[in-house]
Design a protein around this nucleic acid. Sequence first.
DNA 1: AGCGAGATTGACGTTTACGTTAAGGTAAGG
DNA 2: CCTTACCTTAACGTAAACGTCAATCTCGCT
Lengths: 147, 147
Amino acid sequence: MSESERARGVRTWTIGELAGEFEVTPRTIRFYEDQGLLAPQRIGTQRVFHERDRVRLALVLRGRRIGFSIEEIRRIVDMYDAEPGEAGQLRYLLDQIAVRRAQLTQRAADIAATLAELDEVERRAREDLAGLTRPTPRRGRATRPQP
Amino acid sequence: MSESERARGVRTWTIGELAGEFEVTPRTIRFYEDQGLLAPQRIGTQRVFHERDRVRLALVLRGRRIGFSIEEIRRIVDMYDAEPGEAGQLRYLLDQIAVRRAQLTQRAADIAATLAELDEVERRAREDLAGLTRPTPRRGRATRPQP
DNA sequence: AGCGAGATTGACGTTTACGTTAAGGTAAGG
DNA sequence: CCTTACCTTAACGTAAACGTCAATCTCGCT
């Protein structure tokens, strides 16, 4: 944080600070800039990240966690600050939104199904584990703790 | 389907049939076999896929849609048919389950947040679109259809 | 026996998403 | 002024997940 920044309330970040905060490498952030996902201010050659850049990076990383490619992420984040534009553009945007929504809904269903199956596997594992630590407590036979 | 299969009720599939059904290429299925995710029966050199192979492929593709790597998918599907094994193994399995669950929960949250934002973008887009097709219906002024 | 559709195993190519040097520039503190 | 810590571009490297040939082989049918 520079002197003048601490004076007013306009916090900025260096590439390293953002990298640390979001647990990615600076290389990753530069790569995203290369791909047009970020466009931080420059002072000389140095990058200066403002709050909106931070938000955008968070969006990008969320897209990444969801499993979207850079190209798909680009399209999504571009939606956020699209100019109102003309009717054709808006209809295209609405189409894109429908596509993304379908993808996300599918992924959500996949995740729910997988979570349910994890529950089942865990239940069986706990059963097996109980059957190992306690000696064969089959058919409801009570097992008293060892004295 | 072969003669004897149609006679009894034990439907099997060729690689091409499965590929068509799941909309992947045969190459993809062979790759998954190479990676140990599938192990179809062989008759001579030809692969014969049974119901359990089909189920397994579905699991693998679901993992892929969720965004897991082949390695992660392998660990997950291996959980399903893990032998009860010893206590140490079971505890490791429970650990793995916890890890996967955390990942999946994070992804689910990301998806929910993204869906919410898509809703918001769509709402704005529809507003803008309405403002374009109807001529500037500002401040509640009624807009009559053109004669 | 011959044909065409689809199957097989290599083996090399491609794209994505960064990692990893190399070779320096810069700002703050002592 | 010197060090230390961090920043810069440029360029090459790489692991994952297949795609894309090439060169057979095999089934089912006529």
